[in-house]
C-alpha cells in the first residue's frame, strides 16, 4: 500500500464515520398477507438478510413488482418500493435505474407477471442488461386469483381455467433467458433450501448486470402436493457448484448429495442443465461479467437539476400542445 492510498483511507474513514447498522427487522414493514406456509416468505427473509448483510441503505434501495402474490413483496420491505401494473415491473425498474443509477434495484415478479403478460418486457430487460436483480417467484399457478394455469404450469395440470388439464408443455424460463442476446446472469434455486436461496440472491446482487433468478416456489394453498416429491427427496435436487459459482457448505452436501461442478461461463452446458427438471438443478447456470450495462452505455453526465428536467418536459409537451391563441386565430 502506498502512502497516498493510506492517506485516502483516513479521509474515507472520516466520511464513513457514521456507518448505519441495520437489523433484519429494520427492513420489515407490516405483516405479510401471504397464505401461511407460502414460499414467498422464504424469499422475503432471504432479501431482508441480504439487505442487512450488505448494509443496504433503505433509502437507496428499491423493490419493484408487477401483479400477483409475488408482487406484494415491496409492501413488506421497509425500503422504497413500486407496486406496478401487471407485467410492467421491469420497465418501471429500468426507468428507476436509468434516472437513479445510484440506487439498488430489485424486481419481484411471478410466473404470470413475467412469463405471460410481461414476456416482452422480460426479453428486452435481459437484452438491456441493466444492473438489477430480478427474482421470478415461480409457483406454476396463478394464486392471487385462486388457481388458474400459468405458462409454467406442468402439462395436464387441472385448474379453474383448464378443468381437463393443460394441453401444452410448460414454458421453461431458464432456456428462454439463456437464449436472449446479452444474457449475463441466470440462476435457479428452490424456496425450501434457505441457505442456497440466500447465496444465490447474494451472488445475483454482486453481479453487475441483469441477474435473472428463477425461484421454484411451493404454493401450499393451491398446489399443496406439487413439489412434495422434490421437497422430501434430496436426491432430486442437483447442486451446481464451482469456484466461480456457488460454493456449497458441507452442511448442505450432507443432505443434498447430488453435485455437479459447473463452470458458469459455459453457456452450452448451462443450456443443457436448464433443459432438465428432474433432479431440479439449483445454483448459478450462467454468468458473463463482460456484457455492458445499458445504463452505462446511455449514462448522461448532466446534473439532473429541476431546470433540466422542466425544460426537457416542456420541450416534449410543446410538441403536442395546441396553443389557445392559434386555435382562436
Amino acid at each position: 500500500m502506498t502512502a497516498a492510498t493510506e492517506q485516502a483511507s483516513v479521509n474515507e474513514c472520516l466520511l464513513k464515520l457514521y456507518d448505519e447498522q441495520h437489523e433484519i427487522e429494520d427492513y420489515q414493514k407490516g405483516v405479510p398477507r401471504w397464505c401461511s406456509g407460502c414460499g414467498d416468505n422464504a424469499i422475503l427473509a432471504a432479501v431482508q438478510r441480504l439487505c442487512r448483510d450488505e448494509k443496504l441503505a433503505p433509502e437507496k434501495t428499491v423493490f419493484v413488482s408487477g401483479i400477483g402474490c409475488s408482487s406484494r413483496l415491496p409492501h413488506y420491505m421497509n425500503t422504497y418500493g413500486f407496486h406496478g401494473i401487471h407485467g410492467r415491473a421491469l420497465p418501471v425498474a429500468e426507468g428507476v435505474k436509468l434516472a437513479r443509477p445510484d440506487l439498488t434495484v430489485f424486481v419481484n415478479t411471478g410466473d404470470g407477471d413475467c412469463c405471460s403478460i410481461g414476456a416482452a418486457h422480460w426479453i428486452h430487460a435481459v437484452r438491456y442488461n441493466m444492473n438489477m436483480v430480478m427474482m421470478l417467484h415461480d409457483n406454476q399457478i396463478y394464486g392471487l386469483t385462486k388457481m388458474q394455469a400459468s405458462p409454467t404450469s406442468p402439462l395436464g395440470l387441472k385448474s379453474n381455467t383448464t378443468p381437463r388439464g393443460t394441453y401444452l408443455d410448460a414454458l421453461n424460463p431458464l432456456t428462454v433467458t439463456l437464449g436472449i442476446s446479452n444474457v449475463s446472469f441466470v440462476a435457479q434455486v428452490v424456496d425450501w433450501i434457505p441457505e442456497l436461496l440466500y447465496q444465490t440472491i447474494a451472488a445475483a446482487y454482486h453481479h453487475k448486470g441483469f441477474s435473472f433468478v428463477r425461484i421454484v416456489q411451493r404454493c401450499p394453498e393451491w398446489l399443496p402436493k406439487l413439489m412434495d416429491p422434490w421437497l422430501h427427496d434430496p436426491e432430486r435436487v442437483l447442486l451446481l457448484h464451482h469456484e466461480n459459482g456457488l460454493r456449497v457448505s458441507t452442511d448442505l452436501t450432507r443432505t443434498y448429495r447430488k453435485l455437479e461442478e459447473h463452470d458458469p461461463s459455459d453457456i452450452n452446458r448451462a443450456r443443457e442443465i436448464a433443459s432438465s427438471w428432474d433432479p431440479i438443478p439449483v445454483g448459478i447456470l450462467y454468468r458473463d461479467e463482460n456484457v455492458p450495462c445499458y445504463e452505462d452505455l446511455r449514462h448522461d453526465t448532466r446534473l439532473r437539476t429541476s431546470d433540466l428536467i422542466r425544460n426537457g418536459l416542456e420541450a416534449e409537451f410543446d410538441k403536442f400542445t395546441v396553443w389557445p391563441e392559434t386555435v382562436n386565430a
Binding site: S36, G37, G39, A45
Partner: peptide, 12 residues
C-alpha cells in the same frame, strides 16, 4: 433451524 423457510406457520 437452517432449513426454515420463514413461512410464519409455526410462529402463528
Amino acid at each position: 433451524t437452517s432449513r426454515c423457510t420463514s413461512c410464519n406457520e409455526c410462529t402463528n
